[in-house]
Every structure is written in structure tokens, then in C-alpha cells.
């Protein structure tokens, strides 16, 4: 038996002070904190600055008056048309993107045969997601100026197709929202355990009925999350608006029909309005730019909160905590 106990190894406590750490750890630790806090500061800076500038110049009449081209700032109107334009374009884009994205995700997860085609589809969506929006816009212009798509926009007397309208811009906008809806839906479908599908098959249900009645309702929150994210991207996009929406300040209807005329016509959005009024654009009316930018920021932040809200709501597979509240 030993007379003295061996000295206990010096344990480093988890909450020991920084001074006992290695230098590399200290630098890493500080860098991590700095990065996180720095990001918060930048976000707060953007929101506060835009809020300050926006509220300074924003007044309610700007929201409800049509814009006007005038050298006198007091007569150049508000940005009602850009607000309507943003809403319209976002709705068109997401309305096209959601069914395509959900359909693709369902096919990929539930069928996905042959495997090479599934891989191809996935890479295709990755390519679309990675393509710069200005490239998508130029491609859209080239595409929609074909005679085949003359119904979507204004055609000149000689048969030349203008290619710029809410419909064409919305169609291309759907491409930048599609990857987000697709990704969220696929993730949702993949998180549903296989035995849930089997439970439906075991009740004598077909694959289609299972998708329609069990899987799609189950991924509804995912689809909504993806759609809200995609709407945020559409609302914030400028390149496609500048190239494909015709950049007329007001909504210019094309043809006599009330709704279709507007859709076939040109217009502007908050993003193009900000761009045109900023010192970089033609208008050089920074106060208008700030006010519109603030409104745009509010729209996008509201969409982000909607995403959070949707993600938290409802019981979903994989969230076991919701099952325990009655135990």
C-alpha cells in the first residue's frame, strides 16, 4: 500500500478563465464572439440607419400616390405603383415556382427513378440556384422575345416581341424562388419516416393517395417556409426587374383586358424604384430611395418573421417534444 496518494492530475475546468488557455484557443474564442456580435451590429446598423432615413422621408402620401416624372421633387409623386409591382411580381413568381418545386421534390423523393435522371434533376436545380440573377434575366429576355411568347408581352406592329412584362419577369423570378421551395419541400419529405408511408400503403392506399393525403399535408409547413423565403428573394431582386419589367415607373397596361392587360404590361418595383432614385440611378432623389428602401426592408423582414412563425407552428415528424405534452 502506498504511503502517499499520487497527485491528482490538474484538470482544466470548463469555465476557467481565458488566461489559462492556449493562445490559439484565446484568439479563436475571441474571433468567434467578434464574428457573432459583429454580424448583429451590421444587421442592427442596416435596420436602424434605413429606419432613421426612411422614417425621416417617409410619409403616408408616398405610399398611396402614383409616381410622376418631374424635375420638381414635390411633384414627382410617391411609390404606389412600385409597391403594387413588387406584390404582383412576387405573387406571380411564387405562384409559378411553388407547384413546379413541390412537384419536382415529390417526384425526386417519392419516385426518383431512374437514378441518373434524379441526379440530373438535382444538379439542374443546383445550377439554377447558382446562376446569377442578371444571367437569368438576360436569358429570359432572349427567350421571351421569341414569337412563341408574344402573348406574354407587348408586340410591335412589325411582329417584334418586346419580351418585357410582369408575366415574363415573373416567370424568370420563379427560377430564383424555385430552389428555395424545392429544398424546403425535399427536406420535409425526407424527414418523414418510411414507416409512415408504409402505414398508408398498409391501409390499402395507393402511392398517389399517400402523397396527396398524407405526405403533402405533412410538408405544408416546409412548403410555406420555402415559399416565404422565395418571396423574400423575389421582392429583393433588382436585375430581373430592370431587364425584364420594362422599367416604366408606372404600371403600363397592355391591351384592353383589365387584369391580363396589367400582367402583360410593364411597371416597376420597389427595388427598381430605389435603384432609379438613388444617386447611382437617374432620378437622384435619395430621400425617395431611402423611404422606398425602408418599406422594402420592412416587407422582407416581415416575410422572414413569417418563416419563423411557420417553422414553429404545428406538430411535425421529428419534433418529439410535441408528443410529450400530454404525458
Amino acid at each position: 500500500m502506498a504511503a502517499t496518494a499520487p497527485p491528482l492530475p490538474q484538470k482544466r475546468r470548463l469555465d476557467s478563465s481565458l488566461s489559462s488557455w492556449r493562445w490559439g484557443d484565446r484568439i479563436g474564442f475571441v474571433a468567434c464572439w467578434a464574428a457573432g456580435i459583429g454580424l448583429c451590429l451590421i444587421a442592427a446598423g442596416i435596420v436602424l440607419y434605413m429606419g432613421f432615413q426612411g422614417l425621416k422621408y417617409l410619409d403616408a402620401t408616398l405610399l398611396v400616390t402614383h409616381p410622376n416624372v418631374d424635375t420638381d421633387q414635390s411633384k414627382s409623386g410617391g411609390f404606389l405603383d412600385p409597391i403594387i409591382g413588387t406584390v404582383l411580381l412576387t405573387l406571380i413568381g411564387i405562384a409559378i415556382a411553388t407547384p413546379i418545386a413541390v412537384g419536382t421534390a415529390v417526384w425526386l423523393v417519392e419516385y426518383g427513378r431512374p437514378a441518373w435522371l434524379a441526379r440530373l434533376v438535382e444538379s439542374g436545380i443546383e445550377v439554377v440556384a447558382g446562376t446569377p440573377d442578371i444571367v437569368i434575366a438576360i436569358f429570359g429576355l432572349a427567350l421571351f422575345q421569341k414569337g412563341l411568347f408574344s402573348w406574354m408581352s407587348f408586340s410591335a406592329a412589325g411582329g417584334a416581341v418586346f419580351g418585357r412584362s410582369f408575366l415574363t419577369a415573373g416567370a424568370m423570378m420563379s427560377l430564383i424562388a424555385l430552389p428555395m421551395v424545392f429544398g424546403a419541400t425535399r427536406e420535409g419529405l425526407q424527414s418523414i419516416p418510411a414507416h409512415v408511408r408504409e402505414a398508408s400503403y398498409a391501409l390499402g392506399k395507393t402511392r398517389i393517395a399517400t402523397i396527396r393525403r398524407v405526405l403533402l399535408p405533412a410538408v405544408k409547413p416546409n412548403v410555406s417556409t420555402g415559399a416565404a423565403l422565395g418571396m423574400g428573394r423575389i421582392a429583393g431582386d433588382t436585375a430581373i426587374v430592370v431587364v425584364l419589367l420594362g422599367a416604366t415607373l408606372r404600371l403600363q397596361s397592355e391591351g384592353g383586358l383589365p387584369v391580363l392587360g396589367t400582367l402583360r404590361g410593364t411597371g416597376s418595383t420597389l427595388t427598381s424604384y430605389v435603384y432609379n432614385n438613388s444617386p447611382a440611378g437617374e432620378g437622384a432623389a435619395p430621400n425617395r430611395a431611402y423611404a422606398a428602401a425602408f418599406v422594402l426592408l420592412l416587407v422582407v423582414i416581415a416575410l422572414n418573421f413569417a418563416v419563423d412563425g411557420i417553422a414553429r407552428r404545428g406538430a411535425r415528424y421529428g419534433l418529439e417534444s410535441t408528443r410529450l405534452d400530454r404525458q
Binding site: 398498409a202 395507393t206 393525403r213 398524407v214
Partner: peptide, 29 residues
Amino acid sequence: VTALRRRVSMVFQQPNPFPMSIFDNVAYA
């Protein structure tokens, strides 16, 4: 096969109700 599975029904290892109401879970069948 759908008719067979109505006559030979199955319960799984993990409880796997569908993400709908209690009523609809049974009504779905």
C-alpha cells in the same frame, strides 16, 4: 394489392399516426 391490404391490415413498431386530426386518421382508412 390495395384490396389485400384492407383485408390484411398492419400496425407498426413505431406509432405512426398521420399529421392530421384523430378523426381524420381513422377516416383516412
